[in-house]
């Protein structure tokens, strides 16, 4: 596969890419989320999308700090990111992380960062609609797949259809959980919970959600967020169902059928 350029490399050639792929911390460092980053990059390359990454110049968006209450830390990271993005005159950003998506889309404008921000499920929907990507394999035809709405793509930003349209393009049998769309149940990782132990309670939130997902009888749990990925995978493993039920990001499911 061809080289993925950084913004700095393109700027040296005096070029601007069609879109900047914002990888995010999870997509960069978490082993499982890295595989989603790789899958999405492959899809972009197959579709002939002219894209770049920031590479070493990307920082955490500041989302977990802000939601924990640490506004100083958020501002430090966010302003640094806005400065870098504005330096490269970035117009359009795609990211596979709903938390990065939400912050860059909704919270960076107040800091002087105005970009068109799309989630990778929306971007893939566009590539399929334009015919730049074509579904060929019928690997999931008739397979039961359930879809877990992430809070930051769903309720936070009202994106419910793009991910579902990807699933329907796979000819899969989408079985919804009772709590879906606006009523979707959180995986338990948001609001910087990912980095702390649970408060005392009866149950872990991801256990509650995975029980619901398993209840649909689906063989695949589709997610759109690296944190949901971790929580749902852990929950499936805790239920000892990792042999029969797989958790995939939507980009991975699409790549499997191209």
């Amino acid at each position: 596969m061809s080289h993925i350029p950084t913004m700095a490399e393109l700027a040296a050639e005096g070029r601007q890419p069609e879109v900047l792929f914002w990888v995010g911390c999870a997509g960069s460092f978490d082993d499982r989320a890295q595989r989603v980053t790789i899958a999405f990059s492959k899809l972009l390359q197959k579709a002939g999308v002219d894209f770049a990454i920031l590479g070493q110049e990307e920082s955490c968006t500041g989302d977990p700090a802000r939601r924990a209450g640490n506004e100083f830390l958020f501002q430090m990271l966010a302003q640094q990111n806005v400065a870098v993005l504005n330096m490269y005159e970035v117009k359009k950003i795609v990211t596979a992380c709903p938390h990065c998506f939400n912050v860059i889309k909704n919270e960076y404008p107040e800091l002087g960062g105005n970009y068109e921000v799309v989630h990778h499920t929306q971007f893939l929907q566009g590539l399929l609609a334009e015919g730049r990507l074509k579904i060929e394999g019928g690997n999931f035809k008739g397979k039961k797949i359930t879809y877990h709405d992430s809070c930051y793509l769903g309720r936070a930003n009202d994106v419910y259809e793009a991910p579902r349209s990807l699933l329907s393009s796979l000819d899969a049998d989408l079985v919804e959980m009772k709590r879906c769309r606006t009523n979707g149940l959180c995986c338990g990782a948001g609001g910087a919970q990912m980095w702390k132990e649970d408060e005392p309670g009866d149950k872990r939130i991801n256990t509650e959600r995975v029980e619901e997902a398993l209840g649909t009888g689906a063989e695949i749990v589709a997610v759109n967020c690296p944190f949901c990925m971790t929580m749902m995978t852990d929950g499936v493993t805790a239920k000892e169902k990792q042999e029969s039920v797989m958790v995939y990001d939507l980009a991975e499911l699409i790549l499997n059928n191209i």
């Binding site: 993925i4 590479g55 955490c60 700090a65 924990a68 640490n70 990271l77 980095w195």
Partner: peptide
């Protein structure tokens, strides 16, 4: 540790790998 890592290495986790090692 989250705050420290964000402040010192601009990442939500303190890891030694490069941000674009996945490339």
């Amino acid at each position: 540790p989250l705050f420290n890592s964000m402040e010192n290495s601009q990442a939500a986790w303190a890891v030694s790998t490069e941000r674009d090692a996945w490339k």
